[in-house]
């Protein structure tokens, strides 16, 4: 009687379980999806950094910004939160951290 040995079975498995190439459309689909996710997160952060980021721009608007800042920031967080529900959440946390940093710095400057 001819029996299969472990080596034979391993060879059969190598022949049977070969890597399967993903269809081209999957690569395109994935790249599109990942681009949307990364662009959305980067876009949210970039918007904030443009509007708030540079301390050299804070001198005159700082008082007005303080008054508007909290309300405006809250609105922005709400907007970002609504948007981030569908997208990557890293962007939202980054926005929130940036916002806290900026408000903290504004308060320090006002306090003298």
């Amino acid at each position: 009687m001819s029996d299969l040995g472990m080596g034979d079975v391993e060879q059969l498995l190598r022949n049977a379980l070969v890597p399967v190439e993903p269809p081209e459309r999957l690569s395109e689909r994935l790249e599109r999806t990942l681009s949307e996710v990364t662009d959305a997160a980067a876009g949210e952060l970039a918007d904030w950094e443009l509007e708030i980021g540079d301390p050299r721009n804070w001198a005159r608007p700082v008082i007005a910004a303080t008054a508007l800042g909290v309300a405006g920031a809250s609105l922005a967080v709400v907007r970002a939160r609504r948007h981030a529900k569908k997208k990557d959440t890293h962007g939202l946390r980054a926005i929130e951290h940036s916002l806290e940093d900026v408000l903290g710095q504004v308060r320090k400057r006002l306090d003298g």
């Binding site: 980067a42 950094e49 946390r93 980054a94 951290h97 940036s98």
Partner: peptide, 10 residues
């Protein structure tokens, strides 16, 4: 850990 920002994110 804080979320990555800017260059780290890139």
């Amino acid at each position: 850990a804080t979320a990555p920002t800017g260059k780290d994110k890139l």
